[in-house]
Every structure is written in structure tokens, then in C-alpha cells.
């Protein structure tokens, strides 16, 4: 699978239009993040891909050829649902072994994948004794038990500690390197920004922004925060006057340091400060806006 394309896909549940003609192309070897507020249509779009919801209109294509999300298509995907709760009376190994048997994976894969997600020591414990993070790891094991060409992870970061997040990042990297299409749906966009290749922002059933994180940052055109630490002997007021020609000084209560909001396009003007003012600066840090703010800006633009 080189390209998976959703073409003008719409889904209607009675009077509710969950997706309104969304078109999207997912590529092999990329990790794609689907973001958006609750009710934006992320889960519906995933369910269309999984064959759980039939679109009212639109086409699903694999490498340009129209396909249905039928058994043959579903045999090619791995899936981790959001907040999945496996049977409490089964052991972790029994859960994975069921999905391995159902998907035709060899038995040796069961222990391999449990080892991979860090549940080897807990494999014989009942799921009711698992922590939230362990349950999420178990879900990941289920998604990974058979090889896939499309990996769909719905809110994969929920309940994961730092070790588990490191595991998730390595899973994403492996699948990217193996040429899989990886689709994530998550609210944790700030956490995932550096881990994904492209992201799409859904709002009210429509894709309102699409691109790599850098291009979306550029599109949002939010000011970057410049943190300036003046030297102890510097004339702070003169420095403030000079900096205000480049951006807006943000109030920082009780601190000698200055914080300046600068449009990215004007950032280079800081280099134009005269030598006297530059000499007043002991340290300077450029902090890009958190991706949450980019997300909010793009959503408000779309509204």
C-alpha cells in the first residue's frame, strides 16, 4: 500500500452530518496525525477506514484503485481503539493469543509482542490487575500482533508513562521505516508534533488544515516568544525601547528578564539592533509557540 486516499467522504447519522466531504491522502512511510475537537469527525473517519461505518458518499482508494473496507482490506490493518477495556478475567497472554489466532499470526508472535510492549513479566496476570498504562500497552500488543500495512492508533498516548511513550515512539519509527501507513488520532498534539510527518485538523466534519507541523506553524503565523536576559549593568529601559521596535514586550512580573513577542518574519530584525544594545544582552532564547496554540489559531481561523 503506497497511498490510501479518502475522496470526498461524507457520513450522515440521521440528521447529524459527521463527515462533510473529506478528502485526504495517507502515504506509505509516514505518520499522520488526525486532530480536532470532540465531535469533529475523527472517530467517524477512522471507522470508515475500518469498515465499521459505511460512508454516505465518497470513495476509498488504495494506490488509486477504489476499494471497499471489506475483509481483504481489513486483513491489512492493525488497530488500537481509544480506551479499550479487555476482558478482566483473561490474562494478558490470553487476550493477545485470541487476536493472534483470529488474525492468523504464529503463536511465537504472542510472546514476542508481549516482550516488545514490556508486558512479558505480566503475561500470566489477569487483566483486572493491570494498571491503565499496562492496559494501553496490551492494546498496543493487540494492534501489533500481526503485520499490517495500515496501523490505526486512536488516542494512543492515554495513560502512558515516559517508558511507554518511548516505546510508542519506537513503534511509530519502526512502522514508518517499514513503509506502513500510520494514522493516529489524538488530542495530545503538542506531545505528538515532533513525532508525526503530517497532520490534518478536522472541525465540524471537515478538514480545515493539512500539512506538516512546520507549514502549519507558518500558516498560523503566531508570534514567537523571545526571552532576553539583560546584563546586570545594562540600561534596561534603553533595551526595552530598542526591543519594542521589533515586537511587543510581554509583562513578566518581578523579573529583570524581558520577554518579547515577535512575528517570525521579523525575527531577523533582532540582528539589526545596534552594537550598544546587543552588548546589553547576556542571554537570548527563542521559544516557538506551543503547538496547542497553533491548533487553536487554525481552528479559530476555520470558524
Amino acid at each position: 500500500m503506497q497511498r490510501l486516499t479518502l475522496e470526498d467522504v461524507a457520513v450522515r447519522f440521521g440528521r447529524i452530518e459527521a463527515l462533510r466531504g473529506t478528502s485526504l491522502e495517507l502515504r506509505a512511510g509516514e505518520v499522520f496525525l488526525l486532530a480536532g475537537p470532540n465531535g469533529a469527525g475523527k472517530s467517524t473517519l477512522i471507522r470508515v477506514l475500518l469498515g465499521l461505518v459505511a460512508p454516505t458518499r465518497g470513495t476509498l482508494r488504495v494506490d488509486g484503485a477504489p476499494v471497499r473496507a471489506d475483509r481483504a482490506f481489513r486483513a491489512r490493518l492493525g488497530y488500537l481503539p481509544e480506551s479499550v477495556a479487555f476482558s478482566e478475567s483473561s490474562t494478558g497472554r490470553e487476550v493477545v493469543s485470541f487476536f493472534a489466532a483470529a488474525r492468523g499470526a504464529p503463536k511465537k508472535r504472542i510472546d514476542e509482542v508481549l516482550e516488545r510492549v514490556g508486558l512479558a513479566d505480566a503475561r500470566s496476570r489477569l487483566v483486572r490487575g493491570y494498571s491503565r498504562g499496562m492496559r494501553q500497552r496490551l492494546g498496543l500488543a493487540v494492534a501489533l500482533v500481526a503485520p499490517c500495512e495500515l496501523l490505526v492508533l486512536d488516542e494512543p498516548t492515554g495513560g502512558l508513562d515516559q517508558d511507554a511513550l518511548t516505546l510508542l515512539w519506537s513503534v511509530l519509527d519502526e512502522h514508518r521505516a517499514a513503509g506502513c501507513v500510520v494514522l493516529l488520532a489524538s488530542h495530545e498534539i503538542a506531545l505528538l508534533e515532533s513525532r508525526v510527518d503530517r497532520l490534518g485538523l478536522l472541525a465540524r466534519g471537515q478538514l480545515v488544515a493539512l500539512g506538516d507541523p512546520t507549514s502549519l506553524r507558518e500558516r498560523a503565523a503566531l508570534p514567537v516568544r523571545v526571552k532576553v536576559a539583560p546584563r546586570a549593568d545594562a540600561d534596561r529601559d534603553a533595551l526595552v525601547q530598542a526591543l519594542e521596535r521589533v515586537g511587543t514586550i510581554a509583562p513578566v512580573r518581578g523579573a529583570r528578564a524581558l520577554e518579547l513577542d515577535v512575528q517570525p518574519s521579523r525575527l531577523l530584525e533582532l540582528l539589526d539592533l545596534d552594537a550598544a544594545h546587543r552588548a546589553c544582552i547576556a542571554d537570548l532564547q527563542i521559544v516557538p509557540p506551543p503547538f496547542d496554540e497553533v491548533y487553536r489559531r487554525l481552528l479559530s481561523e476555520a470558524a
Binding site: R47, L50, G51, R71, R74, V84, V142
Partner: peptide
């Protein structure tokens, strides 16, 4: 209720 129905039906099964 356990959110596993979607997982079950997303497998190659009718």
C-alpha cells in the same frame, strides 16, 4: 461497552 466491538469487527471477519 468495553470498546472492543470495533476492534473485533475491524478484523477480517463478517
Amino acid at each position: 461497552e468495553r470498546n472492543t466491538l470495533g476492534l473485533l469487527l475491524s478484523m477480517p471477519v463478517g
